[in-house]
Nucleic acid binder design. Structure first.
Lengths: 232, 232
DNA sequence: TTCTCAAAAATTGAATACAAAATTGCCGAT
DNA sequence: ATCGGCAATTTTGTATTCAATTTTTGAGAA
């Protein structure tokens, strides 16, 4: 469609990106089997680049490959999600502390733009887009810290956890609260109050953590091993 | 050799493990081209599993794949190494604080065993083994925290950074100092002094960071873009 | 009916062969 | 000596084929 004849991007990379996008949009519930034959036919590629893409996504933690049993959408238990959220608290607070003093007007505007789109997706109840914008907003805030490696790590952590926080927020109608917290965080950044912003960010992630834990308490044993049973 | 006829492990996994091991042992300097044809022939596998292995190692940050130019051993600039070391400080200190109160005698003995092997490799000047044992020792200390996901993240960070800290320690003859610091850390864990142990760990990583930075100051412009020119 | 076990079907893993696209290096012309 | 272009190497992608393993199906027995 875009560049049928001259593939500037390798098929493997394009396949990886397409799959990652669709996984992040929540197209498949956790635990879904990804059949090589069916997927490769659907994407219009052969099995070789598809398998390379699956390997890459496995290393990113988005799919799980069991030998001779193929790939499934990665599934995290509640303790595992809590672990990763805790790592996010550590990394993101540290990043924000360094980013705030360096943030230019353009940085703040970029984050603000995501916040606006965010609100829009919220009203349309477009959960997939909502999750992706949530990640983009956070990353935009940390951009000014000028630490690309750490930023990439944080992005991967978001990719692995957003599925769960998103679901939690959808089911508990915490979307308004999350949006208000985001606005408040951006406002603190505008005021160059790095310490308060980091403290707020910490609480923001811990809130999601607690809500996820509480939801799991009341719904335990309802689904399989994983946190999420089905979605969308 | 071990199981020629019945490969319980798939070739892709075996290839990934073998390549990771050799990369961590420092067999190839950073930036080395990995030719698919040559490597697959050397490992006795076809190109398909080799390419899947390279994709996986790319996602782990050990090799870098440029489209249509193939794979090279990953190369980090000094700022990038410093970034990752800083992430390590955050994660490892947090882990150690949680691990120390839960450490059993068996945990401490396991770490101690690595320390002994460590000393041995040091006297043999076996830098590759030294680096791997360094990682194992650290991971053994965090085992009791019972946070497998975080542990896996820390292991990946070690895999990406050890090449550089190892080189720095080799070139500056800091190996004795590193060993003394490790012994001291283990002793603090034995005394259940988590706070001191974490503070010591923090300083331990920051020491490596500073030495790396100082070495780079005096040797700047000597090699290419990366921190390391050649090795072993 | 339900359970168990064996055969069949489906799926994954891997090798090989072949084609196409891009990069690299080399060679000659200006 | 530098620039442009051609050829060789290398990477990338597809198709085909086959082996090994898992999953499903189905028949027979309790």
């Amino acid at each position: 469609m875009t560049q049928a004849n001259t593939p500037r991007q390798t098929l493997t990379s394009a396949t990886t990106d397409a799959l990652r996008q669709r996984i992040l949009m929540g197209e498949w519930p956790a635990g879904t089997q990804l059949r090589q034959e069916a997927l490769s036919k659907e994407l219009g590629v052969s099995r070789v680049p598809l398998r390379e893409a699956l390997r890459q996504l496995e290393a990113e933690g988005l799919v799980a490959i069991t030998e001779r049993r193929g790939a499934v959408i990665a599934q995290l238990s509640l303790p595992e999600v809590l672990e990763l959220l805790r790592v996010r608290v550590l990394l993101e607070c540290d990043m924000l502390l360094e980013a705030v003093p360096r943030q230019t007007q353009a940085d703040l505007d970029a984050a603000g733009a995501f916040l606006a789109q965010f609100e829009d997706a919220l009203h349309r109840r477009d959960v997939g887009t909502w999750g992706i914008l949530n990640c983009r907003f956070h990353l935009a805030l940390y951009q000014a810290a000028n630490r690309p490696q750490t930023l990439a790590l944080i992005e991967q952590l978001h990719n692995r956890t957003d599925r769960y926080t998103r679901m939690q927020i959808l089911l508990t109608n915490f979307s308004d609260r999350a949006h208000r917290e985001h606005s408040e965080m951006l406002e603190l950044c505008r005021r160059k109050d790095a310490v308060s912003a980091a403290a707020f960010l910490r609480q923001h992630i811990l809130n999601a953590e607690e809500a996820l834990e509480a939801w799991h308490q009341t719904h335990q044993g309802e689904s399989g091993r994983g946190v999420a049973a089905r979605q969308a």
